[in-house]
Structures are given as C-alpha cells and as structure tokens.
Design a protein around this nucleic acid. Structure first.
Lengths: 218, 218
DNA sequence: ACAAATTTTTAGCTTTGTCTAAAATTAAAT
DNA sequence: ATTTAATTTTAGACAAAGCTAAAAATTTGT
C-alpha cells in the first residue's frame, strides 16, 4: 500500500464520516487538494485492489477491507498525536501535521508498543476516539458542556461565544482547548456545574456551560 | 528533499565511512540494492542540487551541504533507535528497519523534543554516536574489552570467539550484545577486569576480555 | 422533457525513479 | 602497448501519480 493510496483511503473514510457512505469524486478531490481526474484514476486502482467500491459517475465507498485499512491509519494517527502531546509536550494544535507523516510508518509492533507506552489511551488530544487494534471504537460527539451528563468526561474543543470577555474568562480560569473535563455534579437550581479540570475542582456557571463545547465518547 | 534522495545521501555517507571519501557508482548501487544506471541518474540530480560532487567515471562525494544533510538523517535514525529500545522495549537488533522509516519524518521540533525526551543520549543502542543538532559527534571505534582504558564505557557489539562455551558463559553472566559496559578497574597482574554492567559490578577474566568487542566513543 | 449547467471521465502529457541494453570509458593483463 | 575485462554512462522504456483540455454522463431549471 503506497503513501498516496493510504491518503485517499483516509480521505474517503473521513468524508463518509466513518459511516460507509458513498462520496463523490469532486469531494475527494477537494479534500485531497487535487484534481477530479486524478481521483478517478486512483479510485479505479483502489477498486482493483479491493479497497473501494467504484462505479463510474456514481461515486466511491470503502469495502470492508478498505474500512479496516482506514481505521488502522486513523488509529496510528491518533496514537501518535497522544504521544506528541503527552510525551513530547507538543500543544494540541500543532500535532496534526507531524502525525500526518507518522501515521504512514509501517510496523505493527511499533503501534502496539506505542499504545502500551501511552497507557492504552481512548481518545486523542482533540477528543476523538482511538480505534482499537481490531478496529472498534466509540463514536465521539460534540456537545455543549451544559448537555453533558454527570459522570461523563470529555475534551474541550470549542466555544460557542468567542467574544473577548468570554475567552478572557476561560483564560483566567485556566480552561483551554484540549483540556480534559470531568463533570462531577450539576446544581439543579441554577444549572451551575462542579467539574474537574487538570486535577482541580472548579465551579462553572450555567452561562459558561452553555458556551463551551466538549467532545465526548459515549 | 525526497525520500529517495535522502536514501542516496545516506548511502554515500556510510560508504565513505563518515569521512568525505569519493565512492564509486557500483558501490552505491550495491549498497542501495539498485542498478548502477539508476545511481548515475540520481547522483547527477544530487550534484545539480548542490548535495554531491560528481565527475563522470570518477565517482561521487558529498558536498559540505550533503554532509550536513547526511548527519541530520543519521541523527534522526539513531535517536529513534534509542526511543524504540528505551521507551518501547524493542531489542537492539530489531530497531533498524523501523528507524529506517522514522528517519525520514520531517519536523525539526519533533527531533529536538525527542532528543530531550530521551535525555540527550550520546550513543544509539549499537554504540554508534548520535550527531548533535549542529552535526558534531565523536567517532566510535570497536575495540576488544581488553584494550578499553579504565574509566571508559562502551557498548557490547560482538564476540571474537563465537564458540558455544563462550556464548554460554556470557549468557550465564548476563552479558548480552547491546549492553553498556563501564571499565572500573584493571588488575595488572592477571589482566582481569572489574566492570559495571546493568548496574552490577562483575569480575571478568583476561580471557573473556580478549574475546568481547565493545564500541566506544573517544 | 429538454436545454443548460455541473460533474465525471477519458486521452494524452509530465515528472520521478527505476530498468535494460548498448555504447563509452577506464583499468588490468599479457 | 594493445587487447581484454570491468566499470560507468547514455538512450530509450516503463510504472506511479499527477495535470490539462476535451468529451461524456448526470443533474437541474423551467
């Protein structure tokens, strides 16, 4: 499997949002920053190799085998992202480019050992789940902190209100994108929350909880 | 710089044994497991790019720039080898293939952080020195343990006598290839040594010391 | 339903890195 | 020193992956 083939498999996988959806040639071309004619050539090849289902003019989807391949690449990508953040102190927003390269390294032993070295992490620094060796994983969804049930934990991935005062508030309370948050308790009366973040327990008002997105895996 | 170019640079570097020696087209072809005609094509390209000096029929050598490039690749290769052995518990003889892939990952930050994560190691698991970021390093030489001066340390890289009794002896005394050995004291009288290996102090007879190769950096 | 717009494919060309076979150069041998 | 042997280069071809421009199929608008 060439590097380029792997990139196409991944693109088709991501465009199909993990479901086995048929995606258009144009969509793949845009995602890959290449031309539709190049995509046609490549999906023909993937199809011949049994990785994709392709009908001219009808788009492309992954076969079972293609799906497995995609999951293996995603697994590697996300494990390397964890490595970069946890072991090499990269920040969560600078790991993607490097992981994009590392995901192509071919060594099953390396991946297994890396997984173990990292303590078998369930999610990457962006809150996205890491497929198991056999390719299973829980889907992640993005929710307002307010909607996250007590006991669940997730990773802070975005804000609804991006006004300076709100961002400043987050900064002051040391809440940053990429932080892992565990919901400890919900106060029925005013909708405020008690959460654990970076080892500290913090109180969060309903208003804040309504403007912070977490990614959680169910 | 493409992957293939990097491989050629590295081959020329290694054939020249780190010295800036001119090497033959045939030698490069053999090392790279490719054909001489392919080598000719590539060294022309490297020459145009300022990485190599090439005169038809006269062989090829690296320019200053080519040398720096080679050292940067060697540095990455050896740091990854240390990582695989120290952090992922690979054995010293199975790291080469994987490091061969990892050495091509492009990210200066990654290499620097990896170096730090590993505690700025001086040698790889085979006892070969790791070039610094600026490309300097001490040469390694292979010596019989017997010849290693007191106070020096090196890595066990081979045996002179490979008879079963000798190998069995090493095994029993938990001396294995890849082990780091520090020479603590030399007994003038019988030529026996006191060494430190894997945290333990061990006594080694002259006969053993005459049949064990260490790689040391001076 | 049919013309227009959009999407997708085909055909042909380019680059990179490789190969084979033949020609050219250098080295070796008598 | 001249022939033979070995090495190296050139010329021409090929596969992978991409591109452009033109043709074909599909979708859309009325």
């Amino acid at each position: 499997m060439t590097l380029s083939e792997e990139d196409y498999i991944k693109a088709i996988y991501h465009l199909g949002k993990g479901e086995n959806t048929t995606v258009s040639t144009n969509a793949v071309a845009e995602q890959m920053d290449t031309k539709p004619s190049s995509v046609t050539d490549m999906v023909k090849k993937l199809s011949e190799k049994g990785l994709a289902n392709y009908k001219p003019y009808k788009g492309v989807s992954l076969t079972e085998y293609g799906q497995k391949t995609a999951l293996s690449i995603v697994r590697k990508h996300r494990l390397w992202e964890v490595f970069l953040v946890e072991k090499l102190d990269f920040s969560w927003d600078e790991v993607h480019e490097v992981a994009e390269q590392l995901e192509h390294i071919k060594s099953e032993k390396l991946v297994d050992r890396l997984d173990r070295h990292l303590g078998f992490p369930q999610v990457d620094p962006h809150g996205d789940p890491i497929p198991s060796k056999s390719g299973t994983f829980k889907k992640a969804i993005k929710k307002l902190l307010k909607e996250v049930p007590v006991g669940a934990n997730g990773i802070c991935v975005g804000v609804k209100d991006s006004s300076p005062p709100f961002l400043k508030f987050l900064d002051k309370n040391k809440i940053a994108l990429g932080d892992s948050i565990l919901v400890l308790e919900k106060e029925e009366f005013d909708g405020s929350l008690r959460i654990r973040i970076k080892g500290n327990e913090v109180h969060i008002s309903d208003q804040i909880a309504s403007n912070l997105y977490l990614k959680i895996t169910e």
